[in-house]
Each structure stands twice: as structure tokens, then as C-alpha cells.
Design a protein around this nucleic acid. Structure first.
Lengths: 366, 366
DNA sequence: GTGAAAGCGCTAACAT
DNA sequence: ATGTTAGCGCTTTCAC
């Protein structure tokens, strides 16, 4: 076993930067092994070994004894490349994002890369800011997770920042909503919502309402519009007052459901089917309905979007649109971490799968 | 507005490292502003400005026009310090960890630090490995989240690795289970489980079982023992067969509950109260009970530990031991990111709060 | 107030 | 196969 011994303080390098006692450099190792730094570098960190077994052994020995650890910053400087990859999510505590993140992180770990994570609290322009940070870190790639607001100014700024990042040699992928010029993993929000609507109509549902999420967020808009369009093509209209906007959160769902209940007292007897554009919101809505004394699905039906694992055990089980969240993270990471073949941005569409469960079962007496 | 213009390719530095077109260095800025790099550095990144306003303005102008971004690696090399902080969790997709992580991340963001996150998949020795990685990155600090296995060899290795990291100038804090020599944020697992047991007994419960989590994980052991000891002091014994071990996951809870049901058919009529040492496990148990056709709380009662936000809407609402997860992350980050006063490791105990909810309500006919 | 210059620790020509 | 050496981009002493 290696015994870690700090280098003697007397041997401190003569520099304005005070070298911490205990930080061993390649130089130290080379000296101890009586070889050049180049050789030491080749043995310890170099890819192609063209070093004799004996010397190699000597170097390893010295490194172990001294407790050497490479300085990644020095390495990054010398090679012009780092082993960092960035992830930006809206809120890491939201299971939707943490599931996607887990896919990305696993993917990066497999490639021995270090992951930097930012949680923007949905702060607009957060991704641009982080992109700049990661550019300063010379990150290999960054993954932008989540749909953004439709503010044109912000979008322009982001597109530009992405361009600058790429210009500097980095790669960018977005998961959820494409950014011009970058790779993307894009769930079929419109198609999923469309299919959900048709499935519900096929089950016999005729009365609908939507907890539509933030008014200016792309994904929310797509899901609402897909749902609405499908209903329309089935001859069912969705009144404006039947789509309530709110935050993409549990509390957002709770509040929006409250608004809906207040607006439409007749929700109950019609056994209206409420589509929450997010599972997390659906759970909030469920809580609100419980407070109102409404039974799901007997009084009101409820569907979500995402099929989030952590929420798979709520009761009643939620009808929803399944998204392979972890896989999406995986794919996104692969897009920017694997050797690049072409040059044009690649878009990977993700299709959805309808999961009909108890939360939308119609009363047989319906 | 600044227009980002790439430096002319002809001006490429003569080095073996091919400078990407589009990466602007401090040198470039200095030249454009007709000042020395020293001055440019002082203006752009230096702390004490001792630069005349005119020159300062010139430098900013040049930096903006060129689209300059500092190279953090170079900065780290020159100063011997980086702006990185590491976090290690078992599984970022687990809401327990993602909630704690969100606290840490917010805390770090407030201090303009970059967060690197690793998810070890509960792989033993994962924290040691990551600590070494972060040492190579010259990270300021790392936060170790989650309780570990009781493997002595692994613990020794971790303790040593923590020492080496600190020796190199880094700071370490653990959240969940202390590491010798490092700061720690430690929830009162024993006290929480004890209080829970007493509260349940006070409610009238007499028959208990425990979904005890992984046999060799510290937190699981503490919760089991705290619960068991409290029961004992109330004159209630917990048979060995009434504590079932399993993974700390939803599926672990599901399986363990299945085992318990198979072992003890009489669970139902006694209205046994089952304590799952984790909320996530409790939810798995809930699912298993539903499959078995058992009603909670009418047939069997159920309690968890953690009071995880994402699970606050399961039905019936879970009796549990509340832990201020996000705050714990906050505190942990503060411990290692704020200016240090003393030198001895600081332990911050976190007390728990019992939340009695519907899942443990006794039949009135009890 | 400003600039010249010496590194930080490492890698990669290039020479031997 | 091994060593010598010139940087990577930045900060900071030290002299002016």
C-alpha cells in the first residue's frame, strides 16, 4: 500500500504563489523517480506509452509514495481541453428534471467526464448566463434541459451565446425545446397531447378542461394546442375559460385547479376530464380536488403528462403521456459527448406513449 | 451594444496547441486597448483597481468588442484556487437527494461558485473516488450527501481521502453521516425514530413491524434501533422477523412489504403499524399494500421518514418524521463555503419533527 | 498608475 | 525510449 507523505516544506518552490504543503507536482514525482517530467507525464497521464517498463514502474512508485494527483487545470491549459460538461435545468428538485439529469450524469460518468450542474430557478436568461460560465471553464459540452419562455430577445441572446460557445469548440444540445444551430432531443408534445385527447374521447369523454401551465412556455403551449386541436377535430370545443394558466409546479396545479373549480361549478356532474400539462401539476390538482371533496375519477377525471416515476404511486394512478425521461438525458449526452460525424445540428424526436389508468375512468353510468 | 468579432486568423499564436479561432485572450484585449496584460488583468479580473479611469474604460471596451472571456483554468493555475465545489449523492433521481442538492446548489450559486455533481449509484467507495477527482480539479470544497455502509475498510479509505483533500487546502462536509475530521450536518435519526415510536404508541398502536432499509447503512440502522429501543422501553418487543431489510428505494419498500405480508398473515387483523425508514420506501410499501387489497390505515398503518415534498400528496397522507432537507443542504454548503473561523470540525445536529397524518390512524373500534 | 517578467503544472514538439 | 524546451493564459511581484 502507498504511504502518503507530504514533501518537505524546505523544498517549496520559490514563487509568489505559496504552494500548499501537501500538493505534489509532476516535477516532484519526476525528481524522485530520477526521470524527466516528460517521461513522468507520459507514464502517468500520457496516452501512448513509449516508456520502458522499468522506468514506468519507477514513476508509478514515486507517484504513489508522494500521493501525486494531476492538476486538471494545468492539464487543461496545456491541452486546450477540459473534461467538464455542463447541465442546466430549471429546478433540480423537480423530479422531471432530476430524472433527465440522472440520465445525463450517468452518460457523462461512463465517459469519465465531470458534470457541472446549474439550477436556474426558471430565471429567464439563466441558460445564457451559464453558457458563458461554461465557456470560461472551457467545457466540452453543455446540455440545456427544459422548455423556455417565448421572449424573442432572450431567445436571440441564447442563440448568440450558443454560437459563441460552439465557436470556441464546445458542443451544445438542448432537451425539450430546440435552440437554433444546436443539437436537440425533442419530445413530441403536440403529438402526445393529440393522442391523449383522442384516447380520452374514444373512452367516451366529452367534457374537458386544461391546466395549461405557464402561458409563455413553449412545451406548455404545444401540449395545450395539441390537445385543443385534437378535440376540435373530434367536434369538441374548449372554451377559453376552461384553460387555466399557472406555474409548472405542484402548487401551480393546485391553484389552477382551484380556479377551475371556482369558475365551473358544473365540473362535477359532467364528470369533466381535466388535462394537466405536467404530472407534477396533476398531482397538485389531485390534492386540490381532495380538498374540494371531489373523487377522482368518479366526479372528475384527471390526466397528466410525463409519467414521472416518483409519482407512479399516487392514487388513483394517473392517466398520462409517457416520456422516456432518463433515456432522453442519455441520448442528449450521447449527442454531444460522442465523436462527431456530421456537422449539421441533429434533432432527435422522442415519441410519446399514452398510458390510460384509473384517473380517467368514466362512470359506467355515464 | 457590443459586437462580437473573432480575431483575425492570421494573428494566431505560434504554438503546438492550435488556438481555436474565436478564443480571445487577455493578450488580445491588452493589445487592442494598447495597454499591458497586467493592466488588462487588473481591470477585468483584478480585485483592487489601481487603474486610471480612462485606461480602464479602454480595456472594457476592447474586451467587449472582442468578446473576451476569462480562461478559468489559467486563472486557477495562477492563483492556485478554483471556483468549483463538488457534491456527491447516491442517486440524484431520488427526491431525498435532489432536495438536499437543490439547497446546496442554491447556496453555491449565491456565492458565484460552480457546482460539480456526482451520482454514485450507491456504489461503495464512490465518495472516495470523487474526492480524488475533485482534488485534481483543485475544488474549494466537497459536500458528501447520504449515509454510508459500515465497511471499515471503506471508511478508513474515505477518512484518509478526506484528509488528503483537506491537506491540499479543500474543505469537506458530510450531510447525513459524519466523516472523522470533517464538518457534518447530522439529522437525529435515533431521536426521530424514538419520538415517532412513542407518538405511535401514545396513539394506541401496539403491533409494529419495520421496513428497515439496507442492513449495513448507518442511517437505516440508527432509525431501526431508535424505533426498536423506544418500543422496548414502552414494553413492546419487535421480533427479528418483523424487521425486513431491503434497498433504500421505492422498489425496496415494495418488496420488503411483500415479504412482511408473506411472513405475517395476521398483520391485517392486528392493524399492525409498519415503519418504513424512508418515505420513498413507504410509498413502495403503500403500492404493495394496495396490490394486496389492504387498506391504509384501516387494515395496516404506515409511517415513513423524511417528509419528502414530492411525496406530500400521496394518499393517504403519510405519517412521517420531518427533516428540513433543503435547509440541510443550505447549512452544509455554508459550513464549507463561508470564511472559516475555528479549526475543529463542526457538527450541526438537525432535529426532527413528528408529523402524524392519516396513514397511522387507528380504527376507532381498535 | 503602469509595465516587464517570472512563474503556476502540464503537454507536445523536437532533438537525441 | 528519453530529455529539453517552449508555451497554454493568467496573476502578481517588483521596478519604474
Amino acid at each position: 500500500m502507498a504511504s502518503i507523505s507530504a514533501p518537505s516544506p524546505s523544498g517549496a518552490p520559490s514563487s509568489h504563489v505559496v504552494a500548499l504543503p501537501g500538493v505534489v507536482t509532476l516535477q516532484d514525482v519526476a525528481e524522485r523517480a530520477r526521470v524527466s517530467v516528460a517521461t513522468a507525464s507520459r507514464v502517468l497521464n500520457g496516452s501512448h506509452r513509449t516508456v520502458s517498463p522499468e522506468r514506468s514502474e519507477l514513476v508509478w512508485q514515486a507517484a504513489l509514495e508522494l500521493g501525486y494527483t494531476v492538476n486538471r487545470h494545468a492539464q487543461a491549459m496545456a491541452t486546450g481541453q477540459s473534461n467538464l460538461v455542463g447541465i442546466v435545468v430549471k429546478d433540480i428538485a423537480d423530479p422531471y428534471f432530476s430524472t433527465i439529469a440522472s440520465g445525463i450524469i450517468a452518460s457523462a460518468a461512463k465517459r469519465k467526464l465531470l458534470v457541472c450542474l446549474a439550477s436556474t430557478s426558471s430565471e429567464p436568461g439563466g441558460e445564457s448566463e451559464y453558457l458563458a460560465l461554461m465557456r470560461a471553464q472551457r467545457a466540452r459540452a453543455v446540455v440545456l434541459v427544459g422548455s423556455r419562455s417565448d421572449d424573442e430577445e432572450l431567445e436571440r441572446a441564447l442563440t448568440r451565446e450558443v454560437g459563441v460557445f460552439q465557436q470556441a469548440g464546445g458542443r451544445v444540445v438542448s432537451i425539450g425545446q430546440p435552440v437554433p444551430g444546436a443539437d436537440a432531443v425533442v419530445p413530441d408534445n403536440v403529438g402526445g397531447a393529440d393522442a391523449l385527447a383522442r384516447a380520452l374521447v374514444a373512452q367516451g369523454h366529452r367534457h374537458f378542461a386544461v391546466l395549461a401551465g405557464p402561458e409563455h412556455t413553449q412545451a406548455a403551449k404545444e401540449r395545450l394546442h395539441g390537445f385543443q386541436a385534437a378535440l376540435r377535430s373530434c367536434g369538441i370545443a374548449l372554451a377559453t375559460q376552461d384553460a387555466v394558466h399557472s406555474a409548472f409546479t405542484r402548487d401551480g396545479g393546485y391553484q389552477a385547479m382551484g380556479t377551475l373549480l371556482a369558475r365551473r361549478k358544473r365540473l362535477f356532474k359532467q364528470q369533466t376530464c381535466v388535462f394537466a400539462v405536467t404530472d407534477v401539476m396533476a398531482v397538485g390538482a389531485l390534492a386540490r380536488l381532495r380538498v374540494a371533496g371531489a373523487s377522482v375519477p368518479d366526479d372528475i377525471c384527471l390526466a397528466g403528462f410525463g409519467d414521472i416515476d416518483t409519482l407512479r404511486d399516487v392514487y388513483p394512478p394517473l392517466t398520462t403521456v409517457r416520456l422516456p425521461l432518463r433515456t432522453m438525458g442519455d441520448i442528449g449526452a450521447g449527442l454531444v459527448l460522442d465523436e462527431r460525424v456530421g456537422t449539421a445540428p441533429r434533432i432527435v424526436p422522442i415519441s410519446c406513449e399514452i398510458q390510460l389508468r384509473m384517473s380517467t375512468e368514466l362512470r359506467t353510468a355515464g
